[in-house]
Amino acid sequence: MSLNRAAKENLVRALAVSVIEHADELTSLDQAIGDGDHGLNMKRGFEAVLATLPGLADKSLPEMLRTIGTTLVMKVGGASGPLVGTFFIELGKAVPEQPTRSDLVGATGKAIESVKARGRSEAGQKTLLDVLVPVQAIFAAGADAEAIAAEAAKAAVRTTPMLATRGRASFLGERSIGHMDPGSRSASLLIGAAVATLTIEAGL
């Protein structure tokens, strides 16, 4: 997969816009089972990422991803900053400049392991890992772009009946059941945006 400068810029914009446009929805999901700041926090982080364009897209792909991650870590201001930021930082460490599909499968797998370590969490606890893990599994198994995007959306919905055992929602115990996890929703938005852009720009 080859991403030129314009493609990288489009990718960054698509990621940022996907979160920024859904900030109110993410906040309302978080008001139900968290502290109600997820939309605002993610919006702040991705607005800071957007502010680093166009220069950001001049960087190599690995460096660009690491910069996005560091910006999110510094600007988000909630637990999702280190979690989503770590994903991008570690993805940047693991991808080559011109990744093949198999490079991306390996790199996303490593980045997800780092998110697990950062959050001391596994899939099944009603967190963003409940989207990242199954989506990465079908990506590794050869799913096409459409199937990946569909799985991301479905995986976020599947967190609705789950009991939260990690993160702020875990304080609610059984009352966390019946609400979609906001971190899963934002992860699914980012994946949807990434897949759509990479399909257009690089024929994922």
Binding site: D35, D37, L40, N41, R44, V73, M74, K75, G77, G78, G81, P82
Partner: peptide
Amino acid sequence: DPEGGLGTNV
């Protein structure tokens, strides 16, 4: 948070 609301920042 970085804007002075409730939260923590690195």
